[in-house]
Design a protein around this nucleic acid. Sequence first.
DNA 1: CTGAAAGCGCTTACAG
DNA 2: CTGAAAGCGCTTACAG
Lengths: 326, 326
Amino acid sequence: MKPKIEDVARLAGVSPTTVSRVLNDRGYISNQTRDKVHDAMTKLNYFPNDVARSLFTKRSNLIGIIMPTTTNPFFGELTFHLENICASLGYKVLLCNSLNQKDKEKKYLDMLMRNQVDGIIVGTHNLGILNYQKQNLAVVSIDRYLSETIPVVSSDNYEGGKLATELLIRKGCKQIVLIDGVKELEKSYKRREAYIDTLVREVKVPIIYEIPEVFNVQKQQEIIENIFSEHPEADGIFATNDIFAASYITAAKRHGKKIPEDVKIVGYDGTETVRTVLPELTTIRQPIELIAKEAINILLREIEGEFTDFPHETKLPISLLEGSTT
Amino acid sequence: MKPKIEDVARLAGVSPTTVSRVLNDRGYISNQTRDKVHDAMTKLNYFPNDVARSLFTKRSNLIGIIMPTTTNPFFGELTFHLENICASLGYKVLLCNSLNQKDKEKKYLDMLMRNQVDGIIVGTHNLGILNYQKQNLAVVSIDRYLSETIPVVSSDNYEGGKLATELLIRKGCKQIVLIDGVKELEKSYKRREAYIDTLVREVKVPIIYEIPEVFNVQKQQEIIENIFSEHPEADGIFATNDIFAASYITAAKRHGKKIPEDVKIVGYDGTETVRTVLPELTTIRQPIELIAKEAINILLREIEGEFTDFPHETKLPISLLEGSTT
DNA sequence: CTGAAAGCGCTTACAG
DNA sequence: CTGAAAGCGCTTACAG
């Protein structure tokens, strides 16, 4: 059996109270007692039971992270940073990959609540979460508008979309196509909005392809394929994530299009993986680590009960990485 | 305040015992009572506190997953599958990104023990874990030999290394270089062993470059750069992961080498991300989802106390994906 | 500086 | 079919 505080107390010849105090470095304890207790703990190979502790303190130090899937390099990298920062602050991470499926999100949310998480960071367009707002649960959203009261942290999507579109125009593209996710997701919307605004200002016509099931590779390829038959004249592509951009590049090569001579391409995200695997891709780089830091920063302030002065939107600066696809 | 069982009991006019029985569907309860309890639960928006439950049952239904980093597409994808399977079986995942750093691994391990995880899946060369074996904690390792008693699940690394090397030989490469991690990691070793065996059989000389800090991109690039000055004659590259392969490709292009004419390249892993972003890369594909399934399968058997008949090594079949880099 | 007692929110024998 | 009591392993007022 695992040793418990009582076992340590007995071996050290003190009360459980005293052991607990040593453990938490709380109140006055004589050095002699402290040493006795420490000795007993090492002898028994004791480590405290955080479940019991949480039950009493009502603080789990657990953060729930709900992402579509860590398979996607953006979310994989974001999850890494979130977890890493949490760990450095003494928080533990319960990971949830919802694949953006509503039923899964609901189940995960229930699970997180039952496990008494102190807060949740959401990277999905999870609306079920609104039902839990009344429990005044601390929540921060990455890149998605969920409600008036849930803070959103994101890259400056409008600026990113503007930069990407302007670059393509500057490079002489006449017909610029947007490859985007579906419109309901707020993040896509701002990038798209900037694309449309910028094109319209130049008296150009927006052409938008929507990829509904972001994590269905085949579907994605089918839709991209349509661009070549429906808009063979397209000479500029702004993809709202690098995976879309890469898929387009593959298809373009198959169609004998030269990059960047025949068609120029800009992606979005600029993850470490894509920068290593496809360094030639011009892309808008998100400050992923910074996004993670800000999100946790705000979440912790919510947890500490400062439901006051944090901003509803936090837009972090993006940067343009120019490769050879433009 | 969050409602508790007692609140539900009071509202339903029954005892806490009865509510607990309804909750767990345990023992006999009249339908009428069950309905009353359910009504009260919805009225109060009650959900059970798993922390309290765990304390009593001594089952947390928590699985700890220790990976180097989900930033890496292989581990990001593996983590996704592991978590997904866990969720479908009612287990929750505590995520740890250790970056292969010993001090972090030790801290994570402590944390997992304190949180009473039912089992741990390790994707790092975490040796500190051996100290916990006495606690007879359920552990499964992915790809790394940790001890005689810890089951290892991996792709068939030797076969993969053999396939890769043989392909390069068959394609006419005279001087084949291996880009590998450091030798201590068992996984690398088998792939390397196969590379060496296969070359020696053909009376060729192995040339091995070791990349010590796998997650330090710059260091990685420096070492790869050396290949061009030290072995300009190299016309075949077997990289033990796709990221190394991609880094080499980038460098080769910079050096004006044509692929596959001047140099042929085979990677390892074949993650979804790399297959999408760099589909031209020839690689050995690991059955990542299968690895996840097997690992959890074995872990659950350990947890259920069947410390009997599971194999120490489980090697899952790899497959060769031929792109245009060979 | 140290200890006895109560309680965190559950579940499970044990009675009835 | 239902309830009172004890206990999971901890922590924290409250005494002393």
